[in-house]
């Protein structure tokens, strides 16, 4: 005999815990609104001012364009150098923390801990730290971007190394190869494209990050961004923003296209 209760779709059981979570979430939302004094009205109170600024920015001051170019180039140079230095460091470091290369868990553990600390520092804070150390200028920006790139690339790259096919490592070990030869012949051919791809990805982020680094004195176009905003010269700010958008979109496009081609 067929059990009658199973011929129909059984009702999903109501779970009291889900309701409790919902109440907690809504309560949390209201408490945060009250504590931080965030009211949606604040946004609309100054809305006329916002549209005002927007109109001014939408009519960029093109005579300002030639002044912007040198700092724009400096920004890109900072991004390029930061990417190269950071990626190179990440390359070596990744080899030292991949557990299929270094078997000593103490070594990899300590090095990974250091890596995780470095990764937690946001790029603007890095910029501020390096401005304090080496002074105002693009060198501080390059150093900040190097450390930032390192953090991005090292994590992705060591994970890529750990997922490779272990077969070739075994084969090279059997041939009598030493560690460096194993890395060179069995590991790098499997991960080089990933490394290049991750470095390009870091470069995309760096171009964007480097545009604001100037804000804190770490070189690049951000300096003009800050200056024009301070004197409410929104037409000039508009020029800068437009130029940045064009460059970022262009670089993102080229970079992602080349990454696609690499992975084939």
């Amino acid at each position: 005999m067929i059990d009658d209760s199973l011929t129909q779709l059984p009702k999903k059981r109501f779970k009291i815990i889900n309701l409790i979570w919902l109440i907690v979430l809504i309560a949390g939302l209201f408490i945060s609104i009250n504590v931080t004094n965030t009211h949606i009205s604040v946004l609309f109170e100054n809305f006329s001012q916002f549209s005002d600024i927007f109109v001014q920015m939408a009519n960029p001051d093109w005579s300002y364009f030639p002044t912007v170019i040198p700092l724009l180039l400096e920004t890109i140079k900072m991004a390029v150098l930061g990417t190269i230095i950071g990626s190179a460091l990440a390359f070596v470091y990744s080899l030292l923390i991949a557990r299929n290369i270094i078997k000593n868990k103490l070594v990899t553990g300590v090095l990974r801990f250091i890596m995780n600390i470095i990764r937690t520092i946001p790029d603007l804070l890095l910029g501020a730290i390096f401005v304090a150390i080496v002074g105002i200028g693009p060198v501080a920006g390059i150093l900040a971007l190097s450390v930032f790139t390192f953090g991005v690339v090292v994590k992705l790259f060591y994970e890529a190394i750990e997922t490779i096919d272990p077969g070739p490592i075994e084969a090279l070990t059997a041939v009598g190869a030493n560690k460096l030869q194993i890395i060179c012949f069995a590991i790098l051919p499997q991960v080089m494209t990933y490394f290049i791809s991750y470095s390009l990805y870091a470069f995309e982020i760096n171009v964007r990050a480097s545009t604001v680094l100037g804000y804190i004195g770490a070189g690049g176009i951000g300096l003009y961004l800050q200056q024009t905003l301070q004197v409410f010269d929104y037409a000039k700010t508009g020029t800068i923003i437009l130029v940045i958008i064009v460059v970022v979109v262009l670089i993102d496009y080229i970079s992602s296209k080349s990454r696609e081609a690499l992975m084939k």
Partner: peptide, 20 residues
């Protein structure tokens, strides 16, 4: 390593570097 050099090995999964 020098002793291993005298011993070749063939594997079930060939163990070639596929991208090389």
């Amino acid at each position: 390593r020098l002793l291993r050099r005298n011993i070749g090995m063939i594997f079930q999964n060939f163990n070639l570097v596929k991208r090389s």
